[in-house]
Design a protein around this nucleic acid. Structure first.
Length: 529
RNA sequence: GGGCCCGUAGCGCAGUCUGGCUAGCGCACCGGCCUUUUAAGCCGGGUGUCGAGGGUUCGAAUCCCUCCGGGCCCGCCA
């Protein structure tokens, strides 16, 4: 059984309806590693509904947290200087570097939120700042302040250095300097928390002393208390979260105790997950080691990211490599699809596994009929020579990659080709890239021997006199070389030289047959003219 | 100090939750074939102490314990 179904089943034993939370601090670009959060939350919701339960999933932007580090690309050049003043300030109060966006949060979060739909993720979106400012959080805050001693005792169980006696679980927003990271709260009455703006480990405060109205969003609960407060407020019953929170004595452990003992609420069912690395490097929004959802859509279909996330268990580390390894991801996905439709036989257990992962990888409904796919490896070659859609479809049809294609099949094929077209220049290794020379490469032509020229001329004549399939053409090149007494590799070299300006290239037979016939003939003839 | 993940063929991995067909897959490699294969040829081949040791069991890559090696996370920020 797939783990997502096991989670759903466990939840259903407790109750029929569930609220699944996900969320992330908007501390920079939101990357595919962060997607585990929403994708799993939404996945659990779907599994729950399939099993007859009801679920709602949401994504919560932690946009009221203070900025601890200036994220890439704002940490470069003069921007860095400009953004330094916002250290310790809540993300929501920081301006956008680009006027097209409302603010810092909009700048980083919007591309992510707008992409979710493309990946079939259906979640309600919350803003932490809005929830605080609307006063919705006032109830839990009051409880937390009243039971500050209890909370302090719980936290102290996991701390080596105890929290001060007058500690309060509340971070006030400094009325004068706008920082949230620098204040220390020491007492409260009615709706107000008294604070002093002192310092944090990364930025100095302004020394101001004041009172914050906690019913108006003039501050927030400290993370370890905020999390359980949120569970209570939104009725969260399940939540996926990164392994950093899952550690013993970490925020889930304390959150669980606080939920129970302070808010009288049962902590949600946890689904801890591992992080995603990028080419072996830890993804980091502050350093700019990121790969985002919009970037994904440029080079791969959304189903592939879902597959990437759901194919292995949540606590298994995943590494994404947009280079050569992407080809394998494509192939694996296609294979899984073929197994699903019974076009490829595998063992019963594997088949069941593939079946479920394939379903989960779909944005919505699972296709009823087999989907016609262009292998991505081939798409990578074709994308470099295709001229227009009509010719492209013709090539694909003649190769048997599309058979009597529906409009849907054609759409998918073209989408994959467009992914390949984006992928090749950005991520493919050099040896997979080539460019058909616009005009006969003069330097290359000069290097040709008489025999080679003769071979090319003859080839031009043969191509114009009859039609070859790719394989026939490839074989024909061999025969031709032998017939005129030329070493086989010499003829291949000649072909690549006049077409690409280099000595090697994609398999000649198939390569030539995707090119425009008249173009090839005239180019081959050109060497002797 | 604590937690998690990984260790299976030359390389990359699946299989471990739920013990059971002869331990699989991709790439690489080797051999053969089509009078020929430069980046979609075809056919055949597994090259393995499943990190080590112990235990449970009729039966262990799979469950339990100990240890070794590698990686990540947390250590009072979130």
């Amino acid at each position: 059984m797939h783990w997502i179904d096991r989670v759903a089943k466990t939840l259903l034993k407790q109750s029929k309806t569930h609220v699944i939370a996900s969320g992330i601090s908007v501390s920079g670009h939101i990357h595919i590693g962060h997607c585990n959060d929403v994708f799993i939350a939404d996945g659990v919701r779907r599994a729950l509904e399939e099993l007859g339960g009801e679920g709602e999933a949401f994504w919560y932007a932690d946009d009221f947290d203070p900025m601890r580090r200036i994220p890439w690309p704002l940490n470069e050049g003069e921007l860095a200087e400009r953004y330094k003043q916002y250290l310790g300030v809540p993300y929501i109060d920081i301006p956008s570097p680009d006027p097209k966006y409302k603010n810092f949060v909009d700048y980083f979060a919007r591309p992510f939120i707008e992409s979710l739909d493309d990946f079939g993720v259906d979640v309600k979106v919350y803003s932490g700042a809005e929830i605080y400012r609307s006063g919705e959080m006032a109830g839990p805050i009051r409880i937390a302040l009243e039971k500050a001693d209890k909370i302090r005792a719980i936290l102290n169980r996991y701390r080596s250095k105890s929290l001060p006696e007058d500690w309060l679980p509340y971070d006030a927003l400094c009325e004068r300097c706008g920082k949230l990271a620098t204040t220390r709260s020491y007492s409260w009455h009615d709706n107000y928390v008294s604070y002093r703006c002192e310092e944090s480990d990364y930025v100095d405060g302004c020394g101001y002393e004041g009172e914050a109205d906690f019913t108006k969003g003039q501050g927030k609960l400290t993370w370890r208390v905020e999390w359980p407060a949120r569970w209570k407020l939104l009725g969260v019953t399940c939540e996926p979260f990164g392994k950093d929170h899952a550690v013993v004595g970490g925020s889930y452990d304390t959150g669980k105790l606080i939920a129970k003992q302070v808010f009288g609420y049962k902590a949600p069912y946890p689904v801890p997950y591992e992080w995603v690395s990028l080419k072996g490097m830890q993804m980091s929004s502050s350093k700019g080691v990121v790969f985002t959802l919009p970037q994904w859509l440029e080079i791969a279909e959304p189903e592939l990211l879902r597959y990437f996330i759901f194919r292995s268990k949540p606590m298994k580390a995943k590494d994404f490599d947009p280079g050569l390894a992407l080809l394998d991801l494509y192939d694996e996905y296609d294979l899984m699809e073929q197994v699903y439709f019974g076009m490829v036989e595998v063992g019963a257990r594997k088949k069941e596994q593939f079946r479920r992962i394939y379903q989960i990888s779909q944005l919505h409904e699972t296709p009823k009929r087999p989907v016609q796919r262009v292998p991505f490896r081939f798409a990578a070659v074709l994308s470099q020579v295709m001229r227009d859609e009509k010719q492209t479809i013709k090539v694909l049809t003649s190769r048997g990659m599309l058979t009597d294609p529906s409009e849907f099949d054609i759409k998918l094929a073209l989408r994959r080709l467009s992914c390949a077209q984006n992928w090749v220049p950005k991520h493919a290794p050099e040896r997979l890239r080539f460019k058909v020379a616009e005009t006969l490469p003069a330097e290359a032509a000069r290097r040709l021997t008489q025999k080679q020229k003769q071979g090319l001329t003859q080839l031009a004549a043969d191509i114009s006199s009859r039609d070859f399939t790719p394989v026939e053409l490839h074989n024909h090149i061999y025969q031709l070389a032998q017939k005129i007494g030329l070493k086989v590799p010499e003829l291949f070299k000649a072909i690549y030289l006049v077409l690409l300006g280099r000595e090697s290239g994609p398999r000649a037979g198939s390569f030539i047959s995707v090119l425009d016939k008249e173009f090839v003939i005239s180019r081959l003839k050109e060497v002797t003219s």
